[in-house]
């Protein structure tokens, strides 16, 4: 087995908040990420899926060391992430980059895109101005932008081109790992395919490793080798992408997969009742039990651990190997 590029070991992140009611609200603790572990091998992609508020973006920021975990550990190429702000951290940040959902929001509207692409080189003190410009041109070419785009302003480019600019800026320091947080959600369908193909080509060519965060299961399946499904700060199921989507084991994964509208055959629907609970007030036992059609008494009192299944998948459900559940699928 190859060595992991990135490894998260039981990471947690909590925030102190007040419940509704402004200054009258009582103090509470929001567990955004409540004990998450995963590993990504070099050149692979882990897709992280879940609904809004499940902690997937926080996990992405923890993975990059943009925020420190409350507990747990992130290891990058075998060593723990250094303290935020230290010289070692800055050096490491060169090798891991982030791409966000909204390309216009991550670019400076008053600057031409070329200098923005080259800026990370200035920050990390790499090369002479002429060399930086050459490297910006080369990186732009690799994401399908042309030389004349260098002098354009963000508003003069289309959504797809802007996302290419953001990608070029992330790639220019030759990172090993890129965390993509909903990188194509703001793009139109016909442009999404361009960017998805580009991400896959870049991985092929440069051996990049991705942590790919998205709520769009179809896109995640398209780009990921492995997938982890999060619900209320925890991973409830993880495994090889193809197998996980073909036969989801956790009731929540099953509901997520069945909720995806498809063009082809009509499938049996598992429609959940209610909304995801407030992360400040996570239900006891299995956090999913109030919405779970298969919940039994044990689910209300005891939180299920993420257990490895015979097929290599891991599922956090008391009834994962219950035949009755499998039949109901």
């Amino acid at each position: 087995m190859s060595s992991p590029l990135l490894e998260a070991i039981d990471i947690r992140r909590q925030y102190n908040v007040r419940t509704a009611g402004g200054v009258f609200g009582r103090k509470a603790v929001l567990q955004a990420v409540a004990g998450v572990s995963f590993r990504i091998d070099m050149g692979r992609t882990l897709g992280l899926v879940g609904e809004s508020g499940c902690g997937k973006s926080t996990t992405g920021k923890l993975a990059l060391g943009l925020i420190p975990p409350s507990s747990g550990e992130i290891r990058f190429v075998g060593s723990t992430l250094p303290a935020i702000g230290s010289a070692a951290w800055r050096d490491m940040r060169r090798r891991m980059q982030m791409v966000y959902q909204d390309p216009l929001g991550s670019l400076d509207r008053r600057l031409q895109v070329g200098p923005q692409i080259a800026e990370p080189l200035i920050i990390h003190d790499i090369g002479t101005p002429a060399e930086r410009r050459e490297r910006a041109y080369a990186t732009m070419a690799s994401v399908g932008l042309q030389k004349h785009h260098f002098e354009r302003y963000p508003h003069e480019l289309s959504g797809g081109q802007r996302q290419r600019v953001v990608l070029a800026r992330a790639l220019i320091t030759e990172p090993k790992l890129i965390v993509c947080d909903e990188p194509i959600s703001a793009l139109d369908v016909s442009i999404q395919a361009q960017v998805v193909n580009l991400l896959l080509d870049l991985q092929d060519r440069l051996g990049l490793t991705y942590l790919f965060i998205s709520h769009d299961l179809k896109v995640v399946r398209q780009v990921s080798h492995d997938v982890a499904v999060m619900y209320l700060g925890r991973i409830v199921e993880t495994g090889q992408a193809e197998a996980l989507f073909r036969a989801p084991a956790h009731p929540y994964t099953r509901a997520l997969v069945s909720a995806i509208p498809s063009l082809g055959e009509k499938r049996e629907r598992l429609i959940l009742s209610g909304d995801p609970p407030n992360p400040v007030d996570v239900p006891a036992g299995c956090a999913f039990h109030p919405r779970c059609p298969f919940a039994i008494a044990r689910c209300r009192s005891e939180a299920p651990a993420l257990r490895r299944q015979p097929d290599g998948r891991a599922v956090a459900c008391h009834r994962a190997d219950d035949d009755a559940i499998a039949l109901a699928a």
């Binding site: 369908v189 016909s190 999404q192 395919a193 998805v196 193909n197 896959l200 299961l217 179809k218 896109v219 399946r221 398209q222 193809e242 989507f245 073909r246 997969v257 995806i260 498809s262 063009l263 082809g264």
Partner: peptide
């Protein structure tokens, strides 16, 4: 241009 949830993965 649409990815799918079933069937073989295509470019």
């Amino acid at each position: 241009a649409l990815p799918t949830l079933t069937g073989p993965r295509r470019r």
